[in-house]
């Protein structure tokens, strides 16, 4: 049984101009111990599917799906209470902007502690030990001191480490990383990606990497889903995607990489005729 199964998921938002369909009949699944990359440009709906899984869609969002299951639990009909037990414990998520996703008013220690308090029965002392242990495992220097720091006293890379520590605090079965390294420098990016992959291998959790960066996909994924304008364009293992992309949009995306440039000009997506074939 797959860890997370999404079948024919559609998400629409109410806007002043009427309903906007952000995600249109998308299906994919993730197994335990697998790294799935969901790639697409802004507006492709790559984050929306994950927000739907997490139950974090805004009030104007509506979703339908034939199936939206985590470990066989139906996320569509699940009670809010049951969902809260799963979210943050068995499924957790890391967001793009680490500095913006931590609460500036509380210390890092308090924020890690909150997750542990909610989902475990540990005592205060045990929680503190665990928090230090977590910060050590994400490679935070002087972890005991770092607990007392506020987010503004840390760099972007350190904040992202704290976010990862919070996300893995309860040993999740599925970790969703939404553009985890986009705001970071390349050397920090490498550290964070290596860290995520190490944690994933160690614990055997499923990892969904949402990204727009094809190079990050090439470095991390086992399997890849390519999305464009709310639709799934292609799904394949990472090697065949880069070696022989089938969908015209995937081809366009790969040839727009500056390192694949041949000649003076970069081909752009509009150079490829994404007609009915591309949208099929």
């Amino acid at each position: 049984m797959a860890l997370l199964e999404i079948e024919n998921l559609t998400v629409e938002f109410d806007t002043v101009d009427g309903r906007f369909r952000a995600l249109d009949g998308v299906s994919y699944s993730v197994d335990a111990g697998e790294v799935l990359a969901v790639v697409g440009e802004s507006g492709s709906g790559k984050s929306v599917a994950m927000l739907a899984v997490m139950g974090l869609l805004a009030n104007n969002g509506h979703l339908w799906a034939d199936k939206l299951e985590f470990e066989g639990y139906d996320l569509l009909t699940m009670s809010a209470k049951k969902r809260r037990e799963i979210i943050g414990k068995d499924i957790s998520m890391i967001f793009q902007e680490p500095i913006a996703s931590l609460n500036p008013c509380f210390t890092v220690g308090a924020q890690i502690d909150e997750t542990l308090k909610e989902h475990t029965t540990m005592s205060r002392g045990e929680r503190k030990t665990r928090a230090i242990e977590l910060l050590d495992s994400v490679g935070m220097p002087e972890s005991a001191k770092a607990l007392k720091k506020y987010p503004h006293q840390m760099s972007g890379g350190q904040c992202q480490r704290v976010m990862i520590a919070m996300a893995i605090a309860c040993k999740p079965k599925l970790l969703i990383a939404d553009e985890p390294t986009t705001a970071l420098d390349v050397t920090i990016q490498k550290q964070i990606l290596d860290l995520l992959l190490d944690l994933q291998k160690e614990s055997g959790m499923g990892l969904i990497m949402i990204t727009h960066d094809m190079a990050v996909v090439a470095e991390t994924a086992d399997r890849v889903v390519v999305q464009y304008k709310g639709k799934k364009m292609e799904e394949s293992d990472v090697l065949s995607l880069f070696e022989s992309p089938k969908n015209p949009y995937t081809k366009a995306l790969l040839s727009a990489l500056p390192e694949n440039a041949t000649g003076d000009r970069l081909p752009t997506v509009s150079d490829f005729h994404l007609g009915d074939e591309g949208a099929a």
Partner: peptide
Amino acid sequence: LFNATPQADIAHIKARL
């Protein structure tokens, strides 16, 4: 810096896998 930059070429993916 060069070593940290993710690479999207096929040889690199094969080596990683």
